[in-house]
Structures are given as structure tokens and as C-alpha cells.
Design a protein around this nucleic acid. Structure first.
Lengths: 125, 125
DNA sequence: GACTATGTTATATTTTAAGTATAACAGCTA
DNA sequence: TAGCTGTTATACTTAAAATATAACATAGTC
């Protein structure tokens, strides 16, 4: 799995990292049971500080994407029951769909875009 | 239109403001041609600095939601051609849908949530 | 003309978050 | 013992957010 950090982005590095790992899990680039690089290795590879990686891993753990083992490292272990994901998604979608309505994107168009992204992610499963 | 700022949120105040105004436009709480409070009035009403409101207004102008007039104030004036909104939406959806897949939310469920939010926003048009 | 309101710009300051730098600890493996 | 994990702690630097004052140009109103 390739991690690309945009250092000019307005998004924090640990957020970018967290998002890319979530996308990596969704697209099955990394699968359940597999492990991520250690915080030190990944930090060195990207060229950032260890604590920044650790912050991303901690968030992913708290959100139910990872299990962190002091001896084995970071292992993908999905816990769908961690929180109400449907409610969270609805909250996130609220702003995006409001933008879409203002830009005259129809509900049908949104459905098409959703399908497109789903197909992109589910391609190789 | 009621503006609610969560001062404990991790989201910047000017972002919260910008998002709520976008949602307000999408739900037709404020309509095209209507005007927002002046930067000074809104700032005082919320209890924040003038520049924070000004930043939100400037962003909304740049995104094609407002026209700012030095004499008349801030007027809703939608410009759907301002940028490729479909591409922007797809980029925003990528992370949210990846989260959904990891949390075992099906494509059909997403469609249902999208419809729900659309109906909520379009209720009184 | 004087006054008031608008957005706009400028500058300086404070506050907060992000990121870095070092170091140490606890637990496991080889 | 040596080396690898995540974890925690502390201190520092950097960047962004938010505040505080002030001034300007432009219009409308009294």
C-alpha cells in the first residue's frame, strides 16, 4: 500500500494518513489480519515524526479499524460495532449534499457518483 | 436562520459558519437575492470577532455562494459554474464511503441515507 | 455637509493545534 | 542481552486560528 502525503495540503498529516489507511482497508489493499508498518518505520519512510504516525494509528484504533499490540505492531482488526456509523455518515453527508444542492447536483447524480466510487473501491474483491 | 457555533468543536469557527450557511441555502432557509447580516452584526450576535465572519463570507464568495457589495452587504447569489462541483463531491465522498465500507454499510444503505438527507433539505421548497 | 453603514485591508497580538525532537518505559522475540 | 514493538512524557518550534484596533473607500440617509 502506497502512502502519499501532500505537505501543502490544508489537511493535517495525521488526518491524511488516517484517511488513506481507511481507503486502503475499504479497497482491500490491506486486509483484516494484515499488519501496518511500525510507527517508526512508516515515519521514517514518509519522512515525518514518529508521533504523527502514532496519532493516526491511535485514532484508527479508537475508531475500530486497528488493534495495536505492543509486541506485534498494528494489525487491521475491524470492529463495525464501535459506534453508530450510519449516524456518523449522515452527519458527514449533510454538508456535502448541501453543497451539491447549491451547485444544482440532483439526487440522481449523487446516486450515480456513489455507485461510481463503490465500484472503484470494490473492483478487486 | 439560526447559527449555532460549537466552541468545543475541532472544526474552525469560520468553517462551521461557512457550512451552516451552505446548508441554510440548500434548505432554502435563505434564498437567492436575500442578504446575510453584516459581518459586524453577525460577529456581535455570535460573540466572535469580525474577521472570523469576514473569512467565512470571503470563502463563500470565492466558492460562488455570495456576492459581497461594499454598500449593500452580503447577498446570496449562486454561481453553479464556479468550479467542477461533481469532481469535488466525488473527492469528498471517497473518504466517507471508504469509512462506510469498513463499517459494513452497503451501497444500498448509502443510497437510502442520501435520499433521507435530500428529503430533509428539500422539504419546504 | 455630516453621519452612518457596508465590505475591505493592514498590522499586531494571543491562543491553540500540529509537528518535531529526545528520551525513557514495558513487554515480547530471537 | 539485544532488538523490536506500542506507549508515555516533556519541551520546543511552527503554523493556523482567532482576537483586537484601526483605518480606508464607497454608498445611502438625514
Amino acid at each position: 500500500m502506497i502512502v502519499e502525503i501532500d505537505f501543502n495540503s490544508d489537511e493535517a498529516i495525521y488526518i491524511q494518513l488516517r484517511n488513506q489507511i481507511v481507503i486502503g482497508i475499504a479497497t482491500a489493499e490491506i486486509r483484516e489480519g494484515e499488519s501496518l508498518p511500525s510507527v517508526r518505520d512508516l515515519a521514517e519512510h514518509i519522512g515525518i515524526n514518529m508521533h504523527t504516525v502514532n496519532k493516526a494509528y491511535s485514532i484508527l484504533k479508537q475508531e475500530g479499524y486497528l488493534q495495536l499490540d505492543r509486541r506485534k505492531g498494528a494489525i487491521i482488526a475491524l470492529d463495525p460495532e464501535k459506534y453508530d456509523a450510519r449516524l456518523a455518515m449522515m452527519e458527514d453527508l449533510r454538508v456535502i449534499l448541501a453543497e451539491g444542492i447549491c451547485k444544482e447536483i440532483s439526487c440522481e447524480e449523487v446516486h450515480r457518483i456513489v455507485d461510481l466510487v463503490f465500484r472503484e473501491f470494490k473492483r478487486e474483491v
